[in-house]
Computed example of a mutant assay.
Amino acid sequence: MKARLKFTKMGPMKFIGHLDLQRLFQRCIRRSHLPIEYSKGFNPHQYLYFALPLPLGATSEGEYLDMTLTDELEPEEIKNSLNAYLPEGINIQEVYILSDEMAVGMAAVDAAEYKIFIDKKTVPLHFMDAVNNFFNQSEILAEKQGKKGIKEVNIKEMIHEYTLDENDEQWIITLLLATGSKTNLKPETVIQQIYRDNNLEYKDCRVHIHRINIYSRKNDLFLPLSDIS
């Protein structure tokens, strides 16, 4: 059977990189004695498929992991078995059963939603006007890391939605970005270009990235991966 896990990555766990997160789940699966399916050959590995790596230092309330099990289990049993071993900050919220034909991991991903929190004290008073002008350009050129190095690309069509908000201490930018196996726009690419266009020095410690959810596109609608399980 295939199962899709929705989990959080909060608190100190935001400093755990993607490879370490993979190893963490592998260890917890072994300790929980879940009947995970392994590949064949001299170096067997667990059939685990993460939807989308999270930027180091970012938090999330909507991460996904797909796995293949050799036995049929109830979703609640899978959830409780893993939560008993996972550290604080990593919490399985829900488990969904997938049909055999459904895409798993990054192959199921078309977009991701983020909230970007920026300390008001670290940017000029006119910053949000500049941000609004940035998104309203007919063409948005940004430096993007590719296989052959850094190149300038038009990311306008990769930004599906944006909203601007604020509280007493922070500017808040919400972004729905094209991402996944077909095209992949990272939120830090967008924010760094905003800073670059405004001659500001970008520092991770002044900006916090939080992922809201990950989506598949079905008939021009973006549906959370939990809704297509």
Rank of each mutant, 00 (worst) to 15 (best):
T59C: 09
L48H: 10
C28R: 13
A178T: 14
T179L: 01
E72F: 06
M106E: 08
G89W: 06
H126F: 08
I29R: 11
L177R: 03
L19K: 12
K14G: 02
E101R: 10
N83S: 03
R217G: 05
F135C: 01
N132E: 12
L86T: 04
T163Q: 10
L65K: 08
P75R: 12
H18C: 08
I36W: 14
V207I: 11
T70V: 14
V190A: 00
N184T: 00
G149N: 04
L73V: 02
K2V: 02
N136W: 06
L141W: 04
L200I: 07
G105F: 06
E143K: 09
F25P: 07
N184M: 04
K218S: 13
I92H: 04
S60D: 13
M67P: 08
Q193W: 05
N133R: 14
L86N: 02
R211Q: 07
P187D: 02
S99H: 08
F134L: 04
Y215D: 07
G149R: 09
V131M: 01
L175R: 00
I140W: 00
S229F: 13
K203C: 13
N213G: 11
W171A: 01
H33E: 12
Q193E: 09
H160F: 15
A130S: 11
M106F: 07
S81N: 15
E152L: 09
F50H: 13
C205I: 15
G89H: 05
S216C: 07
S229D: 10
G89T: 04
K2G: 08
N167W: 07
S99R: 15
Y85H: 13
D66M: 07
M128F: 14
N136Y: 06
P124Q: 01
Q170I: 00
H208E: 13
A51W: 07
V190P: 01
L177H: 02
L164K: 03
M128C: 03
E37G: 07
N219T: 13
V123Y: 02
Q46P: 06
I97G: 00
Y47Q: 11
F50G: 06
T70H: 04
N199D: 14
I173R: 04
E77I: 09
R196K: 15
T122M: 13
N91A: 07
I116P: 03
L73I: 02
I116Y: 00
I29Q: 09
M13I: 03
M13N: 01
K203N: 12
Q170G: 01
Y114P: 01
T59W: 05
A130D: 09
N83D: 05
H160T: 11
P55D: 08
Y114F: 12
D165H: 14
